[in-house]
Design a protein around this nucleic acid. Structure first.
Length: 481
DNA sequence: TTTTGAGTTGTTCGA
DNA sequence: GTCGAACAACTCAAA
């Protein structure tokens, strides 16, 4: 029987089910302290505002769930490099457990802490809680990291069944009295909304963060949108995506839990195999992104393909601002950017269109778009976000060919054929019929008048001409090769 | 070592 | 309206 307590350091794993660090701590048999640190060090990239909002909301449910397991949750603000060894010493902790992270700066801190704590005689154990495979477990036959998705995913599947998720652990044998600490904050202090107006109302209306909500949403998706996923996942006007990404980002749910439930349902409920495989491949893209991040630790700053280092971006600050506000004059782009601002989320198809527009039509550095998404997405992910932006830019792994330049009008007509998505997020165009809603500047004056649209007043004219912007992007990219 | 097949998501042009 | 070709070769992964 161990008498010295254990610490579980929570990061992007805000759940009690399928949490190997928590399970190991409780299994050790002494008192367990849950710890969350709001990391203030500039050495690591802090979460964006929308992510902080999500974590703040998730934290309440986590604290309650841990309390039922006899595990108090302590929230500190500061630098983990100092706080964690300090807390372990004060508590006389015999062991520290956490689940791994994969970004360069985070790995650097974690391995430093592991050495330091072990040097003090404490047990330190780390686990994989957020991936189906460790990034280093998938390799080409030559032993090199994979750079193309399809062989990567095939190789990962070929390694055998994914691990089954862990159940919720039984309560700890003894309840620890949490220590007082001068760096302690409350969950509410993780994000205090200072901006006016308070944008978080839109987030609260759109989302219910937390482990319980994630479980419910997964069930609802399997019973609902999953059927037809392969064909309809590209339609922003339909409800055929899982919307689980923010839960994955905070660790309210794990990919093991998702695949486990998915395969069980597929076997029992006779769901078309193509829908299941397509959805699993999307989880696979998340895995691939972590594989890329692990092998390219500075993925959000450094071009995966170095030849892009010489690319000249125009970097027009006024255009960037119009893009951020959803005022480009291209309805699908503006709808997506406003969905992002209002709800902290954007449909995947529309993400590609707005990213392509920023990079190719406006010739603005992909890092500016990545940073905006990082700050405003509730699902902002250190691997998926930079990997996907680099994919669109063409600088990434398995990237889009340079001549793939999305036409925002055509994309709107294909994937939002009735215009319902645009109508929802660009209400000033709601009076336009489907045939004009993606190209209001081509509509007859009488049609615009009837719909109450005054171009340049109630809704902007296009800030760039599509044909000219496309030609310019082609020239710039051709010059790179 | 060399060869070969394949590679998330598109658009435009001209027949 | 529909269809194939061009866009541009290049890199990756496996045989």
């Amino acid at each position: 029987m161990n008498s010295s307590p254990s610490i579980v350091w929570f990061r992007n794993d805000l759940r009690i089910a399928d949490n190997p660090a928590l399970t190991a701590a409780i299994a050790r048999g002494a008192g367990v302290l849950g710890l969350f640190i709001l990391d203030t060090s500039a050495e690591r990239r802090g979460p964006g505002e929308a992510s902080l909002w999500w974590r703040r909301e998730s934290m309440t449910g986590l604290a309650d769930a841990l309390d039922r397991l006899g595990v108090p949750l302590l929230i500190l603000r500061g630098d983990p490099a100092a706080l964690l060894p300090d807390l372990a010493a004060r508590l006389g902790a015999g062991a520290v457990f956490w689940n791994r992270r994969y970004g360069g700066a985070e790995r650097h801190l974690d391995s430093m802490l592991k050495s330091a704590l072990r040097a003090e005689g404490r047990i330190v154990e780390t686990f994989n809680a957020s991936l189906l495979r460790e990034p280093w477990d998938v390799r080409s036959q030559a032993g090199t990291p994979m750079k193309v998705f399809t062989p990567y995913w095939r190789a990962s599947l070929a390694l055998g069944p994914f691990a089954a998720p862990l159940p919720v652990p039984a309560p700890a044998e003894m309840r620890l009295v949490p220590p007082a600490h001068e760096a302690m904050i409350s969950a509410a202090d993780i994000l205090t909304i200072a901006t006016t107006p308070d944008w978080s109302g839109g987030l609260a209306a759109a989302w219910q963060p937390g482990e319980a909500a994630a479980r419910d949403l997964l069930g609802a998706f399997i019973d609902g949108g999953l059927r037809g996923y392969a064909a309809l996942r590209d339609r922003p006007d339909r409800d055929h995506t899982s919307r689980l990404s923010p839960y994955l980002a905070a660790g309210d749910i794990s990919p093991r839990q998702i695949l486990h439930a998915l395969r069980f349902a597929a076997a029992v409920d006779d769901i078309p195999p193509d829908d299941v495989a397509k959805f699993e491949a999307e989880v696979g893209w998340r895995e691939f992104s972590y594989h890329l991040l692990f092998n390219n630790p500075d993925l959000h700053r450094t071009n995966f393909q170095p030849k892009f280092d010489g690319f000249v971006w125009r970097g027009d600050a006024a255009h960037l601002r119009l893009w951020q506000r959803g005022q480009t004059g291209y309805p699908l782009v503006d709808a997506g950017m406003r969905q992002l601002w209002q709800t902290g989320f954007m449909h995947n198809r529309v993400r590609m269109v707005v990213a392509s527009f920023l990079i190719k039509h406006l010739q603005i550095d992909w890092r500016a778009g990545e940073a905006w998404f990082w700050d405003t997405l509730v699902d902002a992910d250190p691997a998926s976000n930079p990997a996907s932006w680099q994919w669109v830019a063409g600088s990434g792994a398995d990237a889009a060919p340079y001549y793939r330049i999305f036409n925002p009008m055509l994309q709107g007509e294909k994937f939002d054929p009735a215009g319902d998505y645009v109508r929802q997020f660009v209400p000033e165009l709601a009076g336009l019929a489907a045939e004009h809603i993606h190209t209001p500047w081509r509509a007859p004056a009488s049609v615009l008048a009837r719909a109450g649209v005054r171009l340049g007043e109630t809704y902007p004219k296009p800030i760039v001409d599509h044909d000219a912007a496309r030609a310019r992007a082609m020239d710039a990219y051709r010059a790179l090769t």
